Simulated scan of single mutants.
Amino acid sequence: MIIFFWVSLLIVFYTFIGYGIVLFLLVATRRMVKGKRNDLYDLQLLPDCTLIIAAYNEADILDDKITNTLSLKYPEQKLSILFVTDGSSDHSPEIVKKYPSVQLMHSPERKGKIHAMHRAMQQVKTGICIFTDANTFLNEDALINIARHYQDATVGAVAGEKRVNIDAMADATAGEGFYWKYESVLKKWDAELYSVVGAAGELFSIRTDLYIPVPPDTVLDDFMISLRIAEKGYRIVYEPNAYALETSSANIAEELKRKIRIAAGGIQSVLRLKSLLNPFRNFILSFQYISHRVLRWTITPFLLVLAFVLNFFIVFETKAIFYELMLAGQFAFYLVAFTGWIFEQKNIRVKALFVPYYFCMMNYAVLAGIWRYMFSEQKVAWDKAKRK
């Protein structure tokens, strides 16, 4: 029991904290041996790009989104803008038609975002595609900061940064902002060591000729599309100076719904990207992928439960003070998380309690997502989570 307890605890620690420490040390070592990766490019050599925005029933925000899009800095003759409003039953297509510099694709039938992206990709004639969501706003230099990386022939995709508007957070969704700040640091180090392991749909780009259509039932299309490119031996670069800003989930229930869907998509991705688990193909990429993604989406949530249960039985068997303190620490952490849940229900805002609460909610979402994928059905065309 003691051996299993410590193995469980160490894997949990490594998944959420230890990998960050190891990654930092590896990056520091790489800098000493090879120096920092090149970050200077000739902005006169920016490639032709197509910006693709899939929008489903986003009429309330589309004018603001298009205004933001048209304000982005990029050579006008090198940029095409394409909005895809397939399945929208509001006035989204009519809103896009008001802007003559923006191209519209619309089909009344709703077949999901993946189908819409496939249709859009068939129209693309530029060497680079940039994808972003309709409910996010980009910084004005985002496209330039992304596109410049393609002067490096080893780069097959570029992931932008997702930023959550923390100023709008006064409830348990504050944990979402903390989580994305930590994720951003890990992605920055991942990219400097070798490659980011997956891109988020809020803002990412690819070389058009490397695009591989994913199966229509794919849940995390952005993740799968980017890692299929990594499978081919190309790097995925992380560009924190190209960011998509969005508000947090409307409440913790909406965030939980989103996390369960991501978790279901995560286990689906792990099962479909088996080649990335083979360290003999690309050791560094496999190491990053398993450490940063696979552990979180598979065994770690189960090991959290196992460590707590085993700690209880070890105390019962040994009466050792050290393990009693360990158990007390676990009880205290989950009590704080439970208190955060109670406070959230009563609209009492104590941010210090919401990080443990968000952590527990996130791991519960993985368990629920695995259950949904294995024993239920995850719809591809899903009802998006409401945001503030």
Rank of each mutant, 00 (worst) to 15 (best):
G87V: 04
V315H: 03
M105S: 00
I61R: 10
S249K: 04
V294F: 05
V185R: 08
M326I: 06
E317V: 10
E246C: 14
Q268G: 05
A159T: 03
E239I: 06
T29L: 13
H115N: 11
Y150H: 09
T339Q: 13
L9A: 13
S184M: 11
K232W: 06
F24C: 11
Q77I: 08
W297H: 15
V214H: 04
R258P: 09
W297F: 14
M326T: 13
L26R: 01
Y234I: 00
R272W: 02
Y357L: 04
R30W: 01
V197G: 12
A170N: 15
Y211A: 00
R296G: 15
N165D: 12
S184Q: 09
E183D: 15
P215W: 14
S249P: 01
K187P: 07
Y99C: 08
I342D: 03
A368Q: 05
Q345C: 13
V336L: 13
A368P: 00
V124A: 04
K181Q: 14
D60Y: 03
R207K: 07
V124E: 04
A147S: 06
D63N: 10
T67C: 13
K379V: 07
T298S: 06
H115Q: 12
I3H: 09
W371D: 15
V355D: 03
E317G: 13
N135A: 12
L23S: 01
E377V: 15
L70E: 11
I229G: 04
M362H: 15
I321S: 09
R349D: 10
R119N: 05
H115V: 11
F283P: 05
L26A: 05
Y373N: 06
V12F: 01
V7S: 12
L353E: 07
E239W: 09
I225G: 01
T318A: 04
V185F: 11
K78T: 00
I166D: 04
W297E: 14
A55P: 02
V219T: 08
V309T: 14
A134H: 14
S101E: 06
Y358V: 09
P279S: 03
E76R: 02
G233H: 03
G175F: 01
K388M: 09
N241D: 03
F308N: 14
Q44Y: 12
N135C: 06
H118S: 04
A172K: 02
Y357D: 10
L72Y: 06
L143N: 02
E183Y: 14
T339I: 13
K384G: 07
F359W: 10
Y56V: 08
I370M: 05
A159Y: 10
N347T: 07
D171E: 10
D221T: 14
V214N: 06
A250Y: 09
W382I: 09
F223H: 07
F13I: 10
E239M: 02
F24G: 15
Y364C: 07
M117L: 15
S275E: 04
K379Q: 08
V124F: 00
A244P: 00
L325G: 06
L310Q: 08
A174T: 14
H292S: 15
